[in-house]
Simulated assay, not measured.
Amino acid sequence: MKIGVALASLLLLAGCTAADESEPAVPKTFTNPVFLENFPDPGAVLADGIWYAYGTNNTTQNVPILTSPDLVTWTPAGDALPEVGKWAERGNTWAPEVIAGDGGYLLYYTARSTAAGRQCIGVAYAKSPAGPFVDDRAEPLICQGDEGGSIDASPYRDPDGGLYLYWKNDGNAIGRPTHLYGSRLAADGRSLTGKAVVLLTNDAPWENHVIEAPQMVRHDGKLVLFYSANAFDRDVYAMGYAECDGPLGPCRKAAENPILRSTPAAAGPGHSFLVTTPGGETWLLYHAWPPDAIGSVAPGRQLWLDRVDWPGGRPVVKGPTADPQPVPR
Protein backbone atom coordinates (compact mmCIF):
# COMPACT_ATOMS: atom_id res chain seq x y z
CA MET A 1 0.00 0.00 0.00
CA LYS A 2 2.78 2.40 0.94
CA ILE A 3 4.60 1.64 -2.35
CA GLY A 4 1.41 2.29 -4.33
CA VAL A 5 0.78 5.62 -2.59
CA ALA A 6 4.37 6.70 -3.14
CA LEU A 7 4.22 5.76 -6.82
CA ALA A 8 0.96 7.62 -7.27
CA SER A 9 2.48 10.70 -5.63
CA LEU A 10 5.50 10.56 -7.93
CA LEU A 11 3.29 10.23 -10.99
CA LEU A 12 1.18 13.18 -9.84
CA LEU A 13 4.28 15.30 -9.25
CA ALA A 14 5.68 14.34 -12.65
CA GLY A 15 2.42 15.27 -14.30
CA CYS A 16 2.33 18.69 -12.62
CA THR A 17 5.96 19.38 -13.58
CA ALA A 18 5.35 18.42 -17.19
CA ALA A 19 2.28 20.62 -17.34
CA ASP A 20 4.16 23.55 -15.79
CA GLU A 21 7.04 23.17 -18.26
CA SER A 22 4.62 23.02 -21.19
CA GLU A 23 3.11 26.39 -20.27
CA PRO A 24 5.76 29.12 -20.55
CA ALA A 25 5.50 32.02 -18.08
CA VAL A 26 3.65 35.01 -19.45
CA PRO A 27 5.53 38.27 -18.71
CA LYS A 28 3.61 40.85 -16.71
CA THR A 29 2.74 43.87 -18.83
CA PHE A 30 1.32 47.36 -18.46
CA THR A 31 -0.37 49.87 -20.75
CA ASN A 32 0.03 53.65 -20.76
CA PRO A 33 -0.89 56.00 -19.24
CA VAL A 34 0.17 54.68 -15.83
CA PHE A 35 -1.79 57.36 -13.92
CA LEU A 36 -5.03 58.57 -15.46
CA GLU A 37 -5.50 61.80 -13.49
CA ASN A 38 -3.78 65.15 -13.96
CA PHE A 39 -0.12 64.88 -12.84
CA PRO A 40 2.09 67.32 -14.78
CA ASP A 41 5.87 67.74 -14.63
CA PRO A 42 6.85 64.53 -12.85
CA GLY A 43 10.08 64.11 -10.88
CA ALA A 44 10.88 60.90 -8.99
CA VAL A 45 13.16 59.33 -6.40
CA LEU A 46 13.61 55.73 -5.18
CA ALA A 47 13.82 55.17 -1.41
CA ASP A 48 13.67 51.85 0.46
CA GLY A 49 12.20 50.05 -2.53
CA ILE A 50 9.43 52.59 -3.11
CA TRP A 51 9.25 55.11 -5.95
CA TYR A 52 8.03 58.59 -5.01
CA ALA A 53 6.81 60.88 -7.79
CA TYR A 54 6.22 64.61 -7.31
CA GLY A 55 4.09 66.79 -9.58
CA THR A 56 2.89 70.33 -10.22
CA ASN A 57 0.16 71.63 -7.89
CA ASN A 58 -3.49 70.66 -8.20
CA THR A 59 -6.50 72.45 -6.71
CA THR A 60 -5.83 71.27 -3.15
CA GLN A 61 -2.13 70.30 -2.94
CA ASN A 62 1.06 72.30 -3.50
CA VAL A 63 3.16 69.25 -4.38
CA PRO A 64 1.09 66.10 -4.86
CA ILE A 65 2.92 62.80 -4.26
CA LEU A 66 2.35 59.41 -5.87
CA THR A 67 4.02 56.22 -4.66
CA SER A 68 4.69 52.98 -6.53
CA PRO A 69 6.51 49.69 -5.99
CA ASP A 70 7.15 49.19 -9.72
CA LEU A 71 6.79 52.52 -11.63
CA VAL A 72 3.51 51.18 -13.04
CA THR A 73 0.96 51.12 -10.21
CA TRP A 74 0.70 54.57 -8.61
CA THR A 75 -1.16 55.60 -5.46
CA PRO A 76 -1.78 59.18 -4.27
CA ALA A 77 0.13 59.86 -1.02
CA GLY A 78 -0.70 63.39 0.07
CA ASP A 79 1.03 66.76 -0.22
CA ALA A 80 4.84 66.86 0.04
CA LEU A 81 4.87 70.63 0.71
CA PRO A 82 1.82 71.62 2.80
CA GLU A 83 3.15 75.19 3.13
CA VAL A 84 5.25 77.08 0.62
CA GLY A 85 8.11 79.29 1.82
CA LYS A 86 7.38 82.69 3.39
CA TRP A 87 8.65 84.34 0.22
CA ALA A 88 5.93 82.72 -1.91
CA GLU A 89 2.18 82.68 -2.34
CA ARG A 90 0.12 79.51 -2.58
CA GLY A 91 -0.73 78.28 -6.07
CA ASN A 92 1.47 78.14 -9.17
CA THR A 93 3.73 75.62 -7.43
CA TRP A 94 5.41 73.89 -10.34
CA ALA A 95 7.81 71.14 -11.37
CA PRO A 96 9.18 69.81 -8.05
CA GLU A 97 12.17 67.47 -7.92
CA VAL A 98 13.72 65.70 -4.93
CA ILE A 99 17.21 64.39 -4.20
CA ALA A 100 18.76 62.77 -1.13
CA GLY A 101 21.03 65.21 0.67
CA ASP A 102 21.98 66.92 3.93
CA GLY A 103 21.02 63.85 5.96
CA GLY A 104 17.52 63.70 4.49
CA TYR A 105 15.87 64.89 1.29
CA LEU A 106 15.87 68.22 -0.55
CA LEU A 107 12.90 69.39 -2.63
CA TYR A 108 13.44 72.07 -5.27
CA TYR A 109 10.21 73.73 -6.41
CA THR A 110 8.87 76.72 -8.31
CA ALA A 111 6.39 79.19 -6.77
CA ARG A 112 5.22 82.77 -7.20
CA SER A 113 7.36 85.29 -5.33
CA THR A 114 5.26 87.92 -3.58
CA ALA A 115 8.10 90.45 -3.83
CA ALA A 116 9.08 89.87 -7.46
CA GLY A 117 5.66 88.96 -8.85
CA ARG A 118 7.46 86.24 -10.83
CA GLN A 119 7.95 82.51 -10.62
CA CYS A 120 11.07 81.74 -8.57
CA ILE A 121 12.79 78.65 -7.18
CA GLY A 122 12.85 77.54 -3.55
CA VAL A 123 14.33 74.62 -1.64
CA ALA A 124 12.69 72.67 1.19
CA TYR A 125 13.91 69.90 3.47
CA ALA A 126 12.46 66.75 5.04
CA LYS A 127 13.80 63.66 6.77
CA SER A 128 11.58 61.42 4.62
CA PRO A 129 10.85 61.49 0.89
CA ALA A 130 7.17 61.49 1.87
CA GLY A 131 7.64 64.85 3.60
CA PRO A 132 6.36 67.08 4.92
CA PHE A 133 9.04 69.29 3.36
CA VAL A 134 9.68 72.67 4.99
CA ASP A 135 11.15 75.78 3.33
CA ASP A 136 12.33 78.01 6.19
CA ARG A 137 14.03 80.61 3.99
CA ALA A 138 12.84 84.21 3.84
CA GLU A 139 13.82 84.49 0.16
CA PRO A 140 13.85 82.17 -2.84
CA LEU A 141 16.98 80.27 -3.79
CA ILE A 142 16.92 81.65 -7.37
CA CYS A 143 14.83 84.50 -8.80
CA GLN A 144 15.93 86.05 -12.11
CA GLY A 145 13.29 88.75 -12.13
CA ASP A 146 14.94 90.69 -14.96
CA GLU A 147 14.85 87.52 -17.10
CA GLY A 148 11.18 86.73 -16.47
CA GLY A 149 11.74 84.59 -13.38
CA SER A 150 13.20 81.13 -12.76
CA ILE A 151 11.47 77.75 -12.99
CA ASP A 152 11.96 73.99 -13.41
CA ALA A 153 14.81 73.32 -10.97
CA SER A 154 16.48 69.91 -11.30
CA PRO A 155 19.28 68.66 -8.99
CA TYR A 156 22.08 66.31 -10.06
CA ARG A 157 24.80 64.59 -8.04
CA ASP A 158 27.95 63.63 -9.95
CA PRO A 159 29.88 60.44 -9.06
CA ASP A 160 32.61 62.63 -7.53
CA GLY A 161 30.04 63.87 -5.01
CA GLY A 162 29.54 67.30 -6.55
CA LEU A 163 25.97 68.61 -6.39
CA TYR A 164 24.54 70.75 -9.19
CA LEU A 165 21.28 72.49 -10.02
CA TYR A 166 19.75 73.15 -13.45
CA TRP A 167 16.83 75.44 -14.26
CA LYS A 168 15.23 77.67 -16.87
CA ASN A 169 14.82 81.43 -16.89
CA ASP A 170 11.14 82.15 -17.63
CA GLY A 171 12.02 84.44 -20.52
CA ASN A 172 8.99 83.50 -22.61
CA ALA A 173 6.82 85.13 -19.90
CA ILE A 174 8.21 88.53 -20.98
CA GLY A 175 8.91 87.83 -24.65
CA ARG A 176 12.63 87.13 -24.19
CA PRO A 177 14.80 84.11 -25.07
CA THR A 178 14.86 81.19 -22.67
CA HIS A 179 18.04 79.54 -21.43
CA LEU A 180 18.86 76.44 -19.48
CA TYR A 181 21.22 77.35 -16.65
CA GLY A 182 23.48 75.27 -14.45
CA SER A 183 25.35 76.02 -11.24
CA ARG A 184 27.18 74.12 -8.56
CA LEU A 185 25.40 73.78 -5.23
CA ALA A 186 26.92 73.91 -1.77
CA ALA A 187 27.45 70.54 -0.10
CA ASP A 188 24.20 70.88 1.85
CA GLY A 189 22.25 71.70 -1.34
CA ARG A 190 20.80 74.90 0.09
CA SER A 191 22.77 77.58 -1.80
CA LEU A 192 24.52 78.12 -5.13
CA THR A 193 28.30 78.35 -5.31
CA GLY A 194 30.02 79.93 -8.26
CA LYS A 195 28.57 81.57 -11.33
CA ALA A 196 25.45 80.34 -13.13
CA VAL A 197 26.31 79.11 -16.64
CA VAL A 198 24.08 79.15 -19.73
CA LEU A 199 24.08 75.64 -21.19
CA LEU A 200 21.41 75.85 -23.91
CA THR A 201 19.16 78.46 -25.56
CA ASN A 202 15.99 78.09 -27.64
CA ASP A 203 17.58 78.41 -31.08
CA ALA A 204 16.24 75.35 -32.97
CA PRO A 205 13.05 75.61 -35.07
CA TRP A 206 11.24 72.79 -33.25
CA GLU A 207 11.83 74.55 -29.90
CA ASN A 208 10.07 77.74 -31.00
CA HIS A 209 9.83 80.25 -28.10
CA VAL A 210 10.84 78.09 -25.15
CA ILE A 211 13.10 75.37 -23.79
CA GLU A 212 12.54 74.07 -20.26
CA ALA A 213 12.47 71.08 -17.89
CA PRO A 214 16.20 70.22 -17.81
CA GLN A 215 17.50 66.98 -16.30
CA MET A 216 21.19 66.05 -16.28
CA VAL A 217 21.92 62.31 -16.41
CA ARG A 218 25.19 60.37 -16.51
CA HIS A 219 24.92 57.12 -18.47
CA ASP A 220 27.92 54.88 -19.16
CA GLY A 221 30.22 57.74 -18.26
CA LYS A 222 28.58 60.25 -20.62
CA LEU A 223 26.60 63.30 -19.52
CA VAL A 224 23.25 63.88 -21.21
CA LEU A 225 21.00 66.89 -20.60
CA PHE A 226 17.35 66.11 -21.36
CA TYR A 227 14.94 68.99 -21.94
CA SER A 228 11.52 69.85 -23.37
CA ALA A 229 10.52 72.63 -25.74
CA ASN A 230 7.70 74.51 -27.46
CA ALA A 231 4.19 75.27 -26.14
CA PHE A 232 3.25 72.95 -23.27
CA ASP A 233 -0.48 73.22 -24.08
CA ARG A 234 -0.21 72.17 -27.73
CA ASP A 235 0.66 68.97 -29.56
CA VAL A 236 3.96 70.52 -30.73
CA TYR A 237 5.47 70.13 -27.24
CA ALA A 238 8.27 67.56 -27.41
CA MET A 239 11.51 66.39 -25.79
CA GLY A 240 15.15 66.49 -26.88
CA TYR A 241 18.61 66.16 -25.40
CA ALA A 242 22.16 67.49 -25.53
CA GLU A 243 25.52 65.87 -24.85
CA CYS A 244 27.69 67.71 -22.33
CA ASP A 245 31.44 67.61 -21.67
CA GLY A 246 30.99 68.30 -17.95
CA PRO A 247 28.25 69.11 -15.41
CA LEU A 248 28.50 72.75 -16.47
CA GLY A 249 28.99 72.10 -20.16
CA PRO A 250 29.71 72.90 -22.83
CA CYS A 251 26.66 71.08 -24.25
CA ARG A 252 25.70 70.23 -27.84
CA LYS A 253 22.15 69.54 -28.97
CA ALA A 254 21.49 66.23 -30.70
CA ALA A 255 20.89 66.34 -34.44
CA GLU A 256 18.00 63.85 -34.12
CA ASN A 257 15.94 66.06 -31.77
CA PRO A 258 13.18 65.83 -30.80
CA ILE A 259 13.35 62.22 -29.59
CA LEU A 260 9.85 62.16 -28.06
CA ARG A 261 6.93 63.76 -29.84
CA SER A 262 3.16 63.48 -30.29
CA THR A 263 1.49 60.36 -31.65
CA PRO A 264 -2.19 59.49 -32.23
CA ALA A 265 -2.19 58.16 -28.64
CA ALA A 266 -0.42 60.99 -26.78
CA ALA A 267 -0.30 64.74 -27.43
CA GLY A 268 2.48 67.08 -26.31
CA PRO A 269 4.63 64.55 -24.43
CA GLY A 270 7.37 66.09 -22.34
CA HIS A 271 8.68 67.44 -19.06
CA SER A 272 10.34 64.08 -18.61
CA PHE A 273 12.30 62.46 -15.81
CA LEU A 274 14.69 59.57 -16.50
CA VAL A 275 14.96 56.87 -13.83
CA THR A 276 17.25 53.85 -13.57
CA THR A 277 15.75 50.73 -12.01
CA PRO A 278 17.60 48.40 -9.61
CA GLY A 279 17.69 46.00 -12.56
CA GLY A 280 19.73 48.50 -14.58
CA GLU A 281 17.02 49.54 -17.05
CA THR A 282 16.36 53.18 -17.90
CA TRP A 283 12.77 54.40 -18.15
CA LEU A 284 11.24 57.78 -18.85
CA LEU A 285 8.42 59.25 -16.78
CA TYR A 286 6.68 62.12 -18.57
CA HIS A 287 3.32 63.76 -19.00
CA ALA A 288 1.10 63.87 -22.08
CA TRP A 289 -2.39 65.08 -22.97
CA PRO A 290 -5.08 62.82 -24.41
CA PRO A 291 -5.20 63.94 -28.07
CA ASP A 292 -8.90 64.81 -27.75
CA ALA A 293 -8.42 66.80 -24.52
CA ILE A 294 -5.37 69.05 -25.05
CA GLY A 295 -5.39 71.85 -22.51
CA SER A 296 -7.99 70.19 -20.29
CA VAL A 297 -8.13 70.32 -16.50
CA ALA A 298 -9.55 66.81 -16.38
CA PRO A 299 -8.07 64.42 -17.24
CA GLY A 300 -5.30 66.94 -17.90
CA ARG A 301 -1.70 65.81 -18.41
CA GLN A 302 -1.50 62.14 -17.53
CA LEU A 303 1.56 60.20 -16.39
CA TRP A 304 3.28 58.01 -18.98
CA LEU A 305 6.19 55.56 -18.76
CA ASP A 306 8.35 54.30 -21.61
CA ARG A 307 11.67 52.52 -21.87
CA VAL A 308 14.87 54.25 -23.01
CA ASP A 309 17.55 52.32 -24.89
CA TRP A 310 21.07 53.57 -25.69
CA PRO A 311 22.29 52.31 -29.09
CA GLY A 312 25.73 53.76 -29.71
CA GLY A 313 25.46 55.62 -26.41
CA ARG A 314 22.59 57.84 -27.60
CA PRO A 315 19.15 57.76 -25.89
CA VAL A 316 16.20 56.41 -27.85
CA VAL A 317 12.76 56.61 -26.23
CA LYS A 318 10.49 53.67 -27.05
CA GLY A 319 7.35 55.76 -27.04
CA PRO A 320 4.82 57.16 -26.62
CA THR A 321 3.75 53.53 -26.44
CA ALA A 322 0.03 52.72 -26.04
CA ASP A 323 0.39 48.94 -26.54
CA PRO A 324 1.07 46.51 -23.66
CA GLN A 325 4.75 46.25 -22.73
CA PRO A 326 6.73 44.39 -20.03
CA VAL A 327 6.97 46.05 -16.65
CA PRO A 328 10.35 47.44 -15.58
CA ARG A 329 12.81 45.06 -13.90
Score class of each variant (00 low, 15 high):
Gly162Asp: 08
Tyr164Cys: 14
Tyr164Val: 08
Tyr164Glu: 08
Leu165Asp: 14
Leu165Arg: 13
Tyr166Trp: 14
Tyr166Thr: 05
Trp167Gly: 10
Trp167Arg: 12
Lys168His: 08
Asp170Ser: 15
Gly171Phe: 10
Ile174Val: 13
Gly175Phe: 15
His179Ala: 15
His179Tyr: 14
Tyr181Ala: 06
Gly182Cys: 05
Ala187Cys: 00
Asp188Lys: 06
Gly189Trp: 00
Thr193Gln: 15
Gly194Pro: 01
Ala196Asp: 08
Ala196Gly: 12
Val197Gln: 13
Leu199Asn: 08
Asp203Trp: 12
Pro205Lys: 13
Trp206Met: 13
Glu207Val: 11
Asn208Met: 13
Glu212Tyr: 06
Ala213Asp: 11
Gln215Met: 11
Leu223Phe: 11
Val224Asn: 00
Leu225Phe: 02
Leu225Asp: 06
Phe226His: 02
Tyr227Gln: 04
Ala229Asn: 06
Asn230Trp: 05
Phe232Lys: 04
Asp233Tyr: 14
Arg234Trp: 07
Arg234Gln: 15
Asp235Ile: 01
Val236Glu: 14
Val236Thr: 13
Gly240Leu: 07
Ala242Cys: 06
Ala242Arg: 09
Gly249Gln: 10
Arg252His: 15
Ala255Arg: 13
Glu256Met: 06
Asn257Tyr: 01
Pro258Thr: 01
Thr263Met: 03
Thr263Pro: 03
Thr263Phe: 03
Pro264Tyr: 11
Ala265Met: 06
Ala267Ile: 04
Leu274Asp: 03
Val275Glu: 00
Thr276His: 07
Thr276Arg: 12
Thr282Phe: 00
Thr282Asn: 12
His287Trp: 08
Pro290Asp: 08
